[in-house]
Amino acid sequence: MTIPVFYTISDNYTPYAAVSIKSLINHADKNKDYTVTLLVQDISDAHKKDLEDLSTDNVHVNIFHISDDMVQPIHKGEENYLRGQFFTMSIFYRLFIPDLFPQYNKAVYLDADTIICTDISEMYDIEIGDNMFASCPDLSIRYMPLLQKYIKECQGIFPPEKYINNGVILFNMKAFRDKKFVDKFYYLMEKYHFDNLDPDQAYMNEICEDKIYHLDKEWDAMPNESMPEIKDPKIVHYNLFFKPWHFEDVQYGQYFWDVAKETKFYNELKDQLKNFTDEDRQRARDDLAKMAAKVDKIVDEEYTWAKVKKTESVRI
């Protein structure tokens, strides 16, 4: 038996994915087998080789190409812009993992901007019952009024603290297939064109609401300037603009660099940090203000999750 682990990336995210996979390998049990699959649409031959060359005797790294047909129905309009700022198709790939890999009834998904600090099989072995998936509540919401407003007034989820971050997922793959999650996703997207700050995450929260198993916070420790570091995190997730290759003083940053130095991308990543200017950093922080403006716009739209849920069930 193998433990399936998935990432979804665009080509430019190869260096960060390589560091994340290396951290997974460093903590993998030598007596267990792992299959790491990266879902992509386009990737250079060089980057494909870089990732596959990370493979070890018991950690097998593969590239899987997402077909254009599968993602063709996903609108590239502003309603599907990540954080209201840009469109990236790769965030949606995770929604298709259960259908694409019917040989697995359970699987782990990780964002590429993560560092694994323990054997990922510990997460895989968590029993989540008949829930659709397991993830951690998004701790950043607790300290950001604009996100509280978004979850309450746009998403209509109460309390907002139960809203999860889907950068770390333990999938009940069989439940996603049996409940036809993708069909529900396509139906809601085509009918309502919901405007979201976090399109893929919003659909997972809404369609699976109350069928989500909440993992302990150590499984998705995110840099947060309003709270101290979580002691002994199991997974570090550099969410939003808190990237160690952009900011020297990011919480949990040393976890990233300790692993990055073991990869061929170390010098490239150090150059990214050096070349990211103070103006670039300020623009990154200003993105939060843009998110706030987007929330005010969404609240007034004809169709929001909160409004639609008063007349139609969006849950599986």
Rank of each mutant, 00 (worst) to 15 (best):
P4F: 07
V5D: 08
F6Q: 01
F6T: 03
I9V: 11
I9W: 07
T14K: 05
T14E: 02
T14V: 11
P15Y: 08
A17W: 04
A18R: 08
I21T: 07
I21K: 08
K22S: 10
L24K: 12
L24H: 04
H27Q: 14
D29V: 01
L38R: 09
L39D: 01
L39K: 06
V40N: 11
I43A: 10
L51M: 05
S67C: 00
M70Y: 14
M70N: 05
V71G: 03
P73T: 05
P73I: 00
I74A: 07
E79A: 14
N80I: 05
Y81W: 05
G84T: 02
I91F: 01
L95K: 04
I97N: 08
K106Y: 06
L110G: 08
D111W: 10
A112E: 10
A112L: 02
T114F: 09
T114G: 02
T118M: 02
E127W: 12
E127I: 06
I128A: 00
D130M: 11
D130Q: 13
N131P: 02
F133K: 13
S140Y: 10
R142C: 08
R142V: 14
R142N: 15
M144F: 08
L146H: 14
Q148Y: 04
Q148W: 11
E161P: 04
K162Y: 05
Y163L: 03
I164L: 12
N165K: 10
F171Y: 13
M173G: 15
K174A: 14
D178I: 12
K179D: 14
D183I: 00
K184G: 02
K184A: 03
Y187E: 13
Y187L: 04
L188T: 05
L188F: 12
K191Y: 02
F194C: 08
N196T: 07
N196M: 03
L197V: 13
D198F: 14
D210V: 03
K211Y: 13
I212L: 08
Y213K: 00
L215E: 14
L215F: 04
D220F: 00
A221T: 10
A221E: 09
N224Y: 02
N224C: 01
E225N: 15
E225Y: 14
P228I: 00
I230E: 06
K234Q: 00
K234A: 03
V236Q: 01
V236W: 04
N239S: 13
F241K: 10
F242M: 15
F247M: 07
D249L: 05
Q251C: 04
Y252M: 13
G253D: 09
Q254V: 03
F256K: 06
A260D: 00
A260R: 09
E262Y: 01
L269G: 00
L269A: 13
E279P: 13
D280F: 10
D280Q: 06
Q282R: 12
A284N: 04
D286G: 01
K290G: 07
M291C: 05
A293D: 06
K297N: 06
I298E: 04
E302P: 09
Y303W: 09
K309M: 10
K309E: 01
R315A: 11
I316E: 12
